[in-house]
């Protein structure tokens, strides 16, 4: 059975570079329900920005294609699925390698996937050439366990 706080949303937008900020801000707003720290929120925004940029730069040649984001909140986790129906990735292992880029002329650093992997708790890349790519990422939002948080505990027990 689904819990009250579990949630889901889907977002579709054109593969225009101005939508990179729209996508990360929207996902961050959705994730805010989990009460993440500023750092966790920054990690989510960066990861979303990286994946959406990849779809815009690598998957499509034009800016009128569709990128889809599906987000789920389950307990204290957010699962973000970003998919395109573009060219697909021929060699996922190579694409994941730090500093590998097929677009050096665009001053791309090749650090996108490395950043995603270090900022998120789980990353899965599925891709079929000429069909599209789907990146599924998970971020666990650490909740302060009340009994372990000594300062709050002491503060609330003062004056008893």
């Amino acid at each position: 059975m689904k819990k009250m706080c579990d949630n889901e949303m889907t977002l579709e937008f054109l593969s225009k570079s101005c939508n990179e900020s729209f996508a990360r801000i929207t996902v961050a707003a959705f994730a805010a329900a989990l009460d993440p720290t500023i750092e966790e929120l920054a990690d989510i925004k960066t990861a979303v920005s990286e994946v959406v940029t990849n779809s815009i730069i690598h998957a499509y040649d034009s800016s009128d294609e569709i990128i889809k984001i599906h987000c789920k909140i389950i307990d204290n986790e957010i699962i973000i699925e970003i998919s395109d129906t573009g060219k697909g990735i021929e060699d996922i292992e190579q694409a994941r390698k730090p500093l590998y880029t097929s677009k050096a002329e665009l001053e791309r650093s090749g650090m996108g996937f490395t950043i995603i992997e270090s900022f998120m708790d789980d990353v899965k890349i599925e891709s079929i050439v000429d069909i599209g790519t789907k990146v599924t990422m998970k971020k666990i939002i650490k909740k302060d366990d009340f009994s372990e948080n000594e300062d709050t505990y002491n503060f609330l027990n003062k004056g008893e």
């Binding site: 990360r24 960066t46 940029t53 650093s109």
Partner: peptide, 9 residues
């Protein structure tokens, strides 16, 4: 905010 695009820049 900055993502990996900033590195190349």
């Amino acid at each position: 905010f900055m993502d990996s695009a900033g590195i190349g820049m």
